[in-house]
């Protein structure tokens, strides 16, 4: 398969970036999208050119390292998958693929397709945890949790923090991410004691990081590789209101 690539190249955060054209001549349809980029990089290194920088780690859709805006969609045209789970068979021979970094003030481009997503880490550090004595693993049935609650909390916890929601949103809002993280704790008994402080501090950090506010367009939900639901956002709003009138 022959693929024409238009890839964003940017040397450093301060320098102006631009699109550069590349051609991958013998791409295999069974390759993952990232393997195709590895293939291109091998070729570039062989020719003595600078390899295209991109983020990746587990390559099985669970770590949230990969990003990429592929033909205008975060993580590419497939729904419910991360870039690493996208395969070349989803494209046609001779296709032109535009590859950009995620664009948001809070996610500055470090180099080429790599963006700095530590704003998410700072939001998590602000309150996205449970302060409990760890010690030995507790007896599994000492705290009983209903099936529906456990499932909802698990669905929220499926968020891998990749930032696709921010990239998809016209306001570069991080509400879907923050709401998933607030929900995964707020739903469970272990997370309830700190729920008010948690939501206040995480939202305050989100605002401080210059993420936009939510316009309820739903673009984030459509782009999310883990299909995190907008219901989490309604829960975040409830949690914020609850925190402001109680405690």
């Amino acid at each position: 398969m022959k693929l024409n690539l238009k890839i964003w190249r940017q040397k450093s955060p301060s320098e102006q970036g631009q699109f550069k054209d590349y051609v991958v001549n013998n791409a295999n349809e069974d390759m993952s999208f990232l393997e195709m980029l590895d293939f291109l990089n091998m070729d570039l290194v062989r020719k003595g050119e600078e390899a295209v920088q991109f983020d990746h780690d587990c390559r099985e859709g669970i770590c949230g390292s990969c990003s990429l805006m592929i033909n205008g969609s975060p993580h590419g045209p497939e729904t419910g998958t991360a870039t690493c789970q996208l395969h070349i068979r989803k494209f046609k021979d001779g296709d032109t693929i535009v590859i950009e970094p995620f664009r948001a003030k809070a996610f500055p481009v470090l180099r080429d397709l790599c963006v700095d997503r530590t704003a998410f880490d700072r939001i998590m550090a602000a309150g996205g945890f449970c302060s409990v004595n760890t010690g030995n693993a507790p007896e599994a049935n000492s705290i009983l949790i209903g099936k529906e609650v456990a499932e909802n909390a698990m669905d929220s916890a499926a968020c891998i923090g990749c930032g696709a929601c921010v990239a998809a949103c016209k306001n570069a809002s991080a509400m879907l991410f923050v709401s998933a993280k607030v929900s995964q704790f707020a739903l469970l008994p272990q997370g309830k004691p700190e729920r008010s402080r948690r939501v206040r501090q995480m939202v305050a950090q989100m605002d401080k990081e210059m993420f936009g506010s939510c316009s309820n367009t739903g673009a984030c939900e459509a782009a999310c590789p883990k299909e995190i639901s907008l219901e989490n956002m309604a829960r975040l709003n409830r949690e914020m209101l609850r925190a402001s009138v109680t405690e």
Binding site: M69, N71, G72, S73, P74, P77, E100, R103, A104, K105, A106, P108, A167, A168, K170, N171, A172, S173, M210, F211, G212, S213, S215, N216, T217, G218, A219, A222, A223
Partner: peptide, 27 residues
Amino acid sequence: KANRASRPIAPSQLPNVCVKRASFASR
């Protein structure tokens, strides 16, 4: 105003595909 500031590029330059997943009314 804050939402505009949170984008490094103008709204018109946003990739069409992801923007169009949201309804016309909402945008």
